[in-house]
């Protein structure tokens, strides 16, 4: 049930047309974890040219949650420490697989119950946070000159400077989050993001058992000509779903 404590969420990931035609698996992954000390949401996009990128994306989701578990216990731990934990935990998750062949983007949002908040992005995609007051923020991109399908990620980046991060103070009821892989985010109209968040709260209500299927169906019918990518999107609401009139 995607409602726990102060958080509710809904997400879905579907194979893109290219992988459907090829008969290959979805290389995106997402995960939400709500525990007593933290809430974490992760979206990852395995790089299409790498053999085990789907595995790498799923491993990255697990790695962020494992890193969050440790980091949330350590009051005052730095952002850099969390990022190093994610890299290390991801490497552990890969076992004997090569990091290069498991390369994946990694986008996360982490909020601890002791009042720390952090948005992180390595590679392309979207992390978008809207405040209950109506203000919004996007994790700033470190590489504004990229074209589509050019990205970095775990297994590619050799320096923590490749990450974009934004530290936050405590959230308020009505704040909400949207995260997506580039198969979705590159096609979104920027000034319709808030409208999409409002739409999601109504069309995919987290308390409905059918919302995940409805969201997946809408993603499969992605209304962009000649689209190919896997598609993953995640919405999360702190407190009420925050639909604005």
């Amino acid at each position: 049930m995607p409602v726990q404590g102060e958080w509710s969420w809904i997400g879905s990931s579907v194979r893109g047309p290219r992988h459907r035609v090829e008969g290959t698996a979805n290389q995106d992954a997402w995960r939400v974890c709500c525990r007593s000390r933290f809430f974490a949401a992760v979206v990852c996009d395995g790089l299409g040219s790498r053999t085990h990128s789907g595995f790498g994306a799923r491993a990255a989701c697990r790695a962020v949650v494992a890193a969050a578990e440790s980091w949330s216990r350590a009051h005052g731990a730095s952002t850099e420490a969390l990022l190093r934990l994610i890299h290390a935990q991801w490497t552990v998750e890969l076992g004997q697989r090569s990091r290069e062949e498991c390369a994946t983007t990694c986008l996360f949002a982490l909020f601890t119950t002791d009042g720390r908040g952090l948005l992180g992005q390595l590679g392309d995609g979207l992390v978008y946070l809207r405040s209950h007051t109506g203000g919004s923020m996007v994790v700033s991109r470190s590489a504004p000159g990229e074209f589509t399908n050019e990205t970095t990620g775990l297994g590619i980046a050799t320096n923590l400077s490749a990450w974009s991060t934004t530290e936050l103070s405590t959230l308020s009821p009505g704040d909400c989050l949207m995260m997506a892989t580039d198969g979705v985010s590159d096609d979104l109209i920027e000034d319709r993001r808030d409208a999409l968040l409002d739409h999601a709260a109504v069309r995919y209500p987290p308390k409905s058992g059918d919302s995940g299927r409805v969201l997946a169906r809408d993603l499969r019918k992605w209304p962009v000509i000649r689209h190919t990518d896997d598609k993953t999107i995640l919405f999360a609401w702190h407190g009420a779903t925050g639909v604005r009139s």
Partner: peptide, 14 residues
């Protein structure tokens, strides 16, 4: 048709 069409650019990537 997807219910998301009012939020995305429908044209193919250039």
């Amino acid at each position: 048709m997807s219910d998301l069409r009012e939020f995305v650019r429908p044209d193919a990537r250039p």
